[in-house]
Design a protein around this nucleic acid. Sequence first.
RNA 1: GGUCCGAUAGCUCAACUGGAUAGAGCAUCAGCCUUCUAAGCUGACGGUUCGGGGUUCGAGUCCCUGUCGGAUCACCA
Length: 609
Amino acid sequence: MKQPEQVASPFLKIMNPDKRLRSEIQKALALLFAQAVDNFQLQPTNQEFEGSHTLVCFPLTKLSRKNPEETARLIGEHLVQQSGIVARYNVVKGFLNLVLNDAVWLEMLRDMYAKGELEELPSLGKEIMVEYSSPNTNKPLHLGHLRNNFLGWSVSEILRANGYNVHRVQIINDRGIHICKSMAAWTLYGDNETPRSSGMKGDHLVGKYYVEFDKAYKAQVSALIEKGLPKEEAEKQAPIMQLASEMLRKWEQKDPETIELWKTMNGWVYEGFEETYKKMGVGFDKLYYESETYLLGKEEVEKGVAQGVFFRKEDGSVWVDLTPDGLDQKVLLRSDGTSVYMTQDIGTAILRFRDFPNIAGQIYTVGNEQEYHFKVLFLILRKLGYTWAEQCYHLSYGMVDLPTGKMKSREGTVVDADDLMLEMIAEAEKQTRELGKLEDMSGAEATKLFAMIGLGALKFFLLKVDPKKRMLFDPNESIQLQGFTGPFIQYTHARIKAILRKAESQGISAASKDLGMNMTLEPSEREVLSVLSVFENRIREAAREYSPAVIANYAYELAKEYNQFYQNVPIFSETDPDKLKFRIVLSHAVADVIRRAMHLLGIDVPERM
RNA sequence: GGUCCGAUAGCUCAACUGGAUAGAGCAUCAGCCUUCUAAGCUGACGGUUCGGGGUUCGAGUCCCUGUCGGAUCACCA
């Protein structure tokens, strides 16, 4: 699957002047050059020149048989005379900069809110599945998961905004040697410690024993090596590893005691995760567990062997040969018959398409270190005859690096998700207090605000970067609440809300119905309207690229543009009632679009801050 | 070694998919609060877009080549 389908009708009924202008230009070109042209380049005008739209005239010189400047002037003149929407133009080299009539912008604003609210899109009537998070159950979530979760959540919202019915899912890797390691260490050293008895979050407690396992294991291995065993042998014979392996075998044989322990410890982890997800503000419509899908995976592999798609080696292991496709051979079942990572992913994919037969695609939000894995997975599914494999897409994102380099659990450089969120919220509180913003705020409102700001900063920081790219997480910078940040945008929203409250108290309505159409706009007002007009385009672009960064950049651009207007143009001291009214309506629209854009990122905006 | 991804201001990132003098934030310096919220606004400083070729009216963007990073190529997940 390459790109999600585009919606015919827009998410928001914004009368983008682009459309009108395009058709006027088309008409002009047809008349001037006696030829239909529909692939001309219309782009936003550079800040330094007057105008909102620029027609690139170089490619048109072939038709006009004139130089670029001459061509631009010809078209510009025609548009001013004939179109009724172009007020004036200027020509720089081969670029035709167009200034639209203010009425065009005013109509756009009026029509946006013709029904009181921005109109949401009608459903596409299509379903799509987005997988994200998908943790192992042996340790708590970390910074990498945060990027993953925020990304998955936001992409889901963006697809929803484009008309899809979205199913959010994850696959929980609840089974395997990793959880058995924690179980082994807990059995040996746990002394019946529980989340309740220790006061620790369940996922952190289980993670603690995973670390304990590693410590004990290393000690045992080096002791054995000192006794003269070769390294490989020592690693196999370490008693704690033997215990973990035995537990895995017993688990597969459904040994009641082992299953019981497994359930208990996974239960602790789920409780911990639940709390973390809640704080993060993400959720899922359906959960898949590896323990429930790997058997189906095994069946499918056996089927593949029967069909001759896979082959079995003498030692009993099952393989797929992908060398004709330019890849390697890949193991699908171990010689002892147990499944590997790929096996369960095959099962999971098939199960999902059985559960949701109508989905138009499945999106896997997984780090880019697994690109090869997914290439192989989709290829295998195709070989098994599942045509929907074409609709599977790996939403691959870059790793989050620390200033010190890569996160490594063994070196203790992992940034814990819970800790980080708490730090961000604490920082938000500290800075809010320093600014003295809490005077007439209730305790409950303040608490809510700190979380909103702290998480807003964190989410925005992780989402503003193109997902495909690796990014650096600098704790000092991420904690910034000024500049290109979530709180900057939240602040702009709160600021506008204060204006709207004042307007309301003065009896000025933000409804757009009786907006005056005859006034001259300030340059900064035109700029704001121009940014508003592209919201819908950006929502589409974000879906096409699976990139919340598009929305993050847009929200910032809008907030910045509004702040310039805010600084330059007084509102309540305006004596012309039409202009005063217009500025209130404009402010309302900006606040509304900011709120919606931030919502697509999973970020809330406050009424006051 | 094969495959894939990346390299843009001191740092972190943009650049509407081939368009104008490559833009923001942070950092540094200088201004703006008796006014609708200064978490803001306005300036200044900062660039051989990794090097070298090519394609064309026009290249950070496309092609070739070199350098340097990273990922991946497990009977780990």
